[in-house]
Design a protein around this nucleic acid. Structure first.
Length: 928
RNA sequence: GGGCCUGUAGCUCAGUUGGUUAGAGCGCACGACUGAUAAUCGUGAGGUCGAUGGUUCGAAUCCAUCUAGGCCCA
């Protein structure tokens, strides 16, 4: 007789291999068709809200791994919070304005920006941005991210733009917005400001000159007679704008004798200067840069004061260590000038020509002025040396001509106006990890004013008017409200489509009485766009609320979005827009190096999804400690697939043993369970506790490792292995089998919920296979399992730690016997235990050690019994002897255990008594 | 150069207030099973805890310096 059919072997349609690249799109389709997002929102209507506000990625290009981490982390949190009972809407957003899109439009579409109208150009930019919003949206959806993809927020949306200039209006009203000068890259030939990305560096010969600045007032540091500070510059034309000389406060400077005069240069440059100038330059004395601070020199061209200031930007790479400083013509110069209250004097106009402020050089172009200035210095005996050098110099990307640095008028937000309030708000926010607080605090504490002007087209125009008569600025509640109305109707295109007259309320007049106005041409920095999303999104949409519970972005956003959002929010509303800020690190390779094209170490998330599946990528995100940088490589992704398979197979095994189980009818009460069943529930409860703690503290890798270890050790290697015998061999409806099934069901039901935020696709797939009535149609709508305190039996836990340690001891001895070819499968073995007195007492209480060791029989000897040859010492249970020998009796054909009784039953001569009982009972049942 | 951060087995992570031979899983090697089978089980080998110096009876853990790397500035 073939007894195989009398066993309850596992059976399920749930496939062992996921075939995710094919299966996931099908699941996605079903989510879309059933409108899962809306369904979830509906199910959580009226529940407490948890608002995670999405930081908008830039709508340009395909998504990369950094995007993937960010979005998956957000998705895990949103799904977890939902399953904890919160109403957690997720509205994804995109940043859609700005220079990179302009550049792409110009490059890819071949659009000449000046050949088309601003409105046409902006339309092209909009098309481009929307195209990439569409592409990225599909890519994000493919990752399994649940959100309101049909209604995302875009910074180019009309309502958004209207809200944005509302914030600008608030800030204006509070006096935080002002107009000032700032040096920018400027192309005199195109007559336009250039962004950093529009600069190309090329080698260019230049006239470098060493110039003496006579000391007018040496303070206590220098004598004034016959003393000069010597500077070096490669741009002589900036000398008319010189207002200062920068020295490094910690460098040593030397007063040297030269041509019967006293010259001041950095001590560290003396050697090279001696050979260059062909002078001996004996040192008279030295002093520190700090000592020189405040010394007043004379600009030899303009007969104007030039004060010595201290700056950290001074180096000894070239020159004299005394750096010519013209605040209007350089970033460092501007910053140090600002520190010392120097104006950004800019005697050069938009065509690169000297203005009247340029004195003798008025009308000259900067290039032409260079030789004239050198000649003048030579004549006045202020030139030490002139040399020609080759250096890398920025050029305009379009016309290829050299650019200049030039201070131009820009709109600024004055950080000083609300700096303290922002710092106070930082203290109220919870920063995760905690050092995020230090990072943003230092930045806000030290940052200069925020230049929000951009001389570009693709963005939100700064809603300010100027009186045509007197030039005075006009911006007030009325003008802002009117422009907002226009933006709400037509978007910010309205600024370009309508005249100032139309955009202003009727009857608007300047203080001077003027009635004609012109519009500001600058647009806002895109950081102002995204930085006002709290106003444009959280305050606009009814399903959201302000402030957000959580912002979650890469750590670079301390300077970026966290910063701009905080600034606009504190400035306009006096409060931070977020309660918690969570940051993640960057993706690096296995060696910890950043991903780059040249190293070729990049990992493409789309490829991972295509080849392995989104769940693998999601599992990877969950497995790493993302607060640090995270490593990615094909090898690591492969490792994740294997972890995935282990989890999947474990759950599949649970399913396959539950195909005849109806929890409503067949569940066994806790009191009736076997000890090992209770042990499994105890471990499950600890897993639930640990995983929930992991999710709650945003330590998803705790959850991952806990679940993976649980599947591998407690389930696969221990409980499931042991309980197979009961499941397969005992009667289908027997208490022993139903007890084990009860545990399997509880484990499955808990694990699938715990996994759902991470392995969303797999959890959904499994959910359909779980027997019995379900609490929700989709696992994502179900609630997280709760820790069952009844199962948390610490006494049981301690006792079973000992028993399982013994199991390991026995396994080692079994392995020795296996190598000696005494046995192979553990069921071919008999185990004899030779315990100490103490061990005997405790081990005797465990009734089913053979079952736990999965051997055919176990003999417990008396403590004082003599130990025969071949007894091995146990490793953990010191003093215990373990003997393994071939099991006695015949192999039961049905349960495969070796029993001496096999063959004694006439009706069933090839099976053991236990099996014959089950078989008989089954057949009698069949007769009923 | 400055601000912030990181460096524990090949990989992903543990390591509680400094306290015995530094742990887990994966991977790897070897073996077993063939009733979880493109599965499953067992055993084993892998670490001068980035480096050096210090504090201490005792340091992966505290301090200093260096080094490798990351983000943001300059």
């Amino acid at each position: 007789m073939d007894y195989r059919n009398t066993l309850n072997l596992p059976e399920t349609d749930f496939p062992m291999r996921g075939n995710l690249p094919k299966k996931e799109p099908e699941i996605l389709k079903s989510w879309e068709e059933e409108k899962l997002y809306e369904k979830v929102q509906k199910a959580r209507e009226g529940r407490p809200k948890f608002i995670l506000h999405d930081g908008p990625p830039y709508a340009n290009g395909d998504i990369h791994l950094g995007h993937a981490i960010n979005k998956v982390l957000k998705d895990i949190i949103v799904k977890y919070k939902t399953m904890m009972g919160f109403d957690a809407p997720y509205v994804p957003g995109w940043d859609t304005h700005g220079l990179p899109i302009e550049q792409q439009v110009i490059k890819k579409l071949g659009v000449n920006r000046h050949a088309v109208s601003a409105l046409e150009f902006r339309q092209k930019c909009k098309d481009y941005a929307e195209k990439y919003v569409g592409i990225q949206r599909e890519e994000f959806k493919r990752l399994g991210v649940r959100g309101d993809w049909e209604h995302p927020y875009l910074t180019l949306q009309k309502e958004y733009e209207a809200a944005q200039i509302g914030v600008f209006g608030d800030m204006t009203k509070k006096g935080y917005i002002y107009k000032g000068l700032k040096p920018v890259y400027w192309c005199p030939s195109c007559e336009t400001a250039l962004a950093e990305a529009e600069i190309e560096y090329a080698d260019k010969p230049a006239t470098a000159i060493y110039v003496k600045f006579a000391v007018r007032d040496g303070m206590s540091a220098l004598i004034k007679e016959n003393t000069f500070v010597v500077i070096w510059t490669t741009t002589p034309w900036t000398l008319p704008a010189n207002l200062a000389i920068s020295v490094h406060p910690e460098l040593t400077y030397a007063v040297v004798t030269a041509q019967q005069e006293h010259w001041v240069v950095a001590e560290g440059m003396l050697e090279s200067l001696r050979s260059l100038w062909k002078l001996e330059l004996p040192v008279e004395r030295t002093l520190s840069g700090k000592d020189l601070e405040g010394v007043i020199c004379i600009n030899p061209l303009m007969d104007r004061d030039s004060v010595v200031v201290c700056g950290e930007h001074v180096t000894l790479e070239a020159g004299t260590g005394c750096v010519h400083t013209a605040p209007a013509h350089g970033e460092d110069d501007f910053l140090v000038g600002k520190k010392y209250g120097l104006p950004a004097l800019c005697p050069v106009d938009h065509q690169g020509k000297f203005t009247a402020e340029g004195g003798a050089y008025v009308g000259l172009k900067t290039g032409k002025a260079n030789p004239v200035i050198v000649e003048d210095l030579k004549n006045s005996n202020d030139l030490v040396l002139e040399e020609t050098i080759e250096h890398s110099y920025p050029h305009c990307w379009r016309c290829k001509s050299p650019i200049i640095f030039r201070a131009t008028e820009q709109w600024f937000a004055s950080i000083d106006g609300f700096r303290q309030a922002a710092l106070d708000e930082i203290e109220k926010v919870r920063w995760i990890p905690a050092w995020g607080r230090d990072r943003i605090f230092n930045m806000i504490a030290e940052r200069g004013d925020w230049c929000i002007s951009r001389q570009r087209t693709w963005g939100v125009p700064i809603p300010i008017f100027y009186c045509e008569d007197c030039g005075k600025v006009l911006v007030n509640d009325h003008s802002i409200t009117k422009v907002q109305d226009f933006y709400r109707q037509e978007g910010s295109d309205a600024w370009f489509a309508h005249s100032a007259m139309e955009l202003l309320p009727e009857g608007t007049a300047c203080e001077c009485g003027g009635l004609k106005f012109r519009k500001e041409t600058d647009i806002m920095d895109v950081w102002f766009d995204s930085g006002t999303s709290h106003a444009g999104v959280l305050k606009q949409r009814t399903e959201l609320s302000w402030p957000a519970d959580l912002y979650l972005e890469g750590s670079d956003q301390h300077r970026g979005w966290f910063n701009s959002s905080l600034s606009t929010s504190v400035a306009a509303f006096g409060q931070a827009p977020y309660r918690n800020v969570l940051t993640h690190g960057f993706v690096v390779d296995e060696q910890g190096r950043k991903m780059s094209k040249s190293l070729g170490n990049g990992v493409d998330p789309l490829k991972v999804v295509q080849e392995l599946g989104a769940d693998i990528l999601r599992l990877w995100v969950s497995s790493v400690d993302y607060k640090n940088d995270v490593a990615a490589s094909p090898r690591i992704m492969k490792q994740m697939s294997e972890a995935y398979r282990k989890i999947r197979n474990t759950l599949r095994f649970l399913l396959s043993n539950l195909n005849d189980f109806d929890p409503a009818k067949d569940k066994v009460s806790y009191q009736e369970l076997q000890e090992i069943d209770r042990w499994a529930l105890l471990k499950l409860s600890k897993v639930v506790e640990r995983v929930l703690l992991g999710y709650e503290s945003y330590e998803f890798h705790w959850a991952y490792h806990t679940i993976h270890n649980f599947c591998t050790i407690e389930l696969s290697a221990v409980y499931l292995d042991i309980v197979k015998d009961r499941l397969y061999v005992e009667g289908k409806t027997s208490l022993l089998r139903r007890s084990a099934q009860t545990v399997l069901y509880e484990v499955l039901d808990s694990l699938v919920r715990l996994l759902a935020p991470v392995l969303s696709f797999m959890a959904e797939e499994i959910w359909l296979y779980i027997p019995g009535e379900k609490s929700a149609e989709n696992v994502q709508i179900a609630e997280m399992p709760k820790v069952n305190s009844e199962w948390m039996d610490e006494e049981l836990a301690n006792r079973w730690d000992q028993i399982l340690a013994l199991r390991t001891d026995v396994a080692k001895v079994l392995e020795i016997a296996r190598q000696e070819k005494l046995i192979n499968h553990p069921l071919t073995a008999q185990v004899d235990l030779y315990p100490t007195n103490e061990q005997y007492e405790s081990l005797q209480q465990v009734p089913n050690l053979a079952e736990i060791f999965i051997v055919s029989s176990l003999v417990m000897h008396q403590p004082n019994e003599e130990r025969p040859e071949g007894v091995q010492p146990a490793e953990v249970h010191k003093g215990l002897g373990i003997l393994v020998q071939p099991a006695k009796g015949e192999k039961c054909e049905r349960c495969w255990m070796f029993q001496e009784e096999v063959g004694k039953n006439e009706e069933h001569p090839t099976i053991c008594p236990r099996c014959s009982d089950v078989v008989s009972e089954n057949s009698s049942r069949l007769i009923d």
